[in-house]
Amino acid sequence: MSTKRFFAVFLLVAVVVAGLLSFYASSHPDGLTKVAEDKGFISQEKEHTLKDSPLSDYGVKGVGDERLSGGLAGVIGVGLTLAVGGGLFWVLRRRGAPAGRR
């Protein structure tokens, strides 16, 4: 399998998992929330400064359908992660290449 084909399949799988399967993720609280509940200091929780951001609460603000909102948030998250990671990889690779190979 070629490298391009591998990355295309990887991207497709990542988008499908983020867009379709994220709706079926656990509705139970995450580890920190669970510990805060168990130890009794959940009442000290404060609102996050980014609570009104477009992707807050694992959804896209303004999209009424919960399933679609979560799926879009997952796809956007995968895209942003790949863009930032790919950009960093490209910059670092170019930086370390010998002068004749740039």
Results as ranks from 00 to 15, higher is better:
93 R>E: 09
69 S>R: 01
6 F>I: 04
4 K>L: 04
43 S>A: 07
31 G>R: 11
83 A>Y: 02
75 V>D: 09
67 R>K: 12
86 G>E: 03
15 V>K: 02
2 S>F: 08
47 E>K: 08
56 S>Y: 14
62 G>S: 03
79 G>F: 07
71 G>M: 02
34 K>L: 15
11 L>F: 00
59 G>D: 07
7 F>S: 05
71 G>R: 03
67 R>E: 06
51 K>E: 10
80 L>K: 03
83 A>W: 03
77 G>P: 07
65 D>L: 04
70 G>C: 08
31 G>C: 15
34 K>W: 15
45 E>P: 01
76 I>R: 08
8 A>E: 02
23 F>R: 04
79 G>P: 07
23 F>M: 10
29 P>Y: 13
42 I>W: 10
87 G>A: 00
30 D>H: 14
4 K>R: 10
6 F>M: 05
11 L>G: 00
22 S>P: 06
43 S>C: 07
44 Q>L: 07
3 T>M: 13
41 F>P: 06
84 V>L: 13
58 Y>C: 11
77 G>V: 04
39 K>Y: 08
44 Q>Y: 07
11 L>H: 00
46 K>I: 00
46 K>C: 00
67 R>V: 02
28 H>L: 15
3 T>H: 14
84 V>S: 04
42 I>Q: 12
27 S>Y: 13
56 S>Q: 11
25 A>G: 13
84 V>R: 05
95 R>T: 09
28 H>R: 14
7 F>I: 01
18 A>F: 04
101 R>G: 14
7 F>H: 01
89 F>D: 10
31 G>N: 13
5 R>P: 02
6 F>S: 05
74 G>P: 13
2 S>C: 07
58 Y>H: 11
30 D>L: 08
23 F>V: 04
10 F>M: 01
52 D>Q: 14
88 L>I: 01
58 Y>L: 13
45 E>C: 06
64 G>D: 15
84 V>A: 09
69 S>T: 05
92 L>V: 01
38 D>R: 09
6 F>L: 07
25 A>K: 12
65 D>A: 05
1 M>F: 04
3 T>N: 13
23 F>D: 09
2 S>A: 05
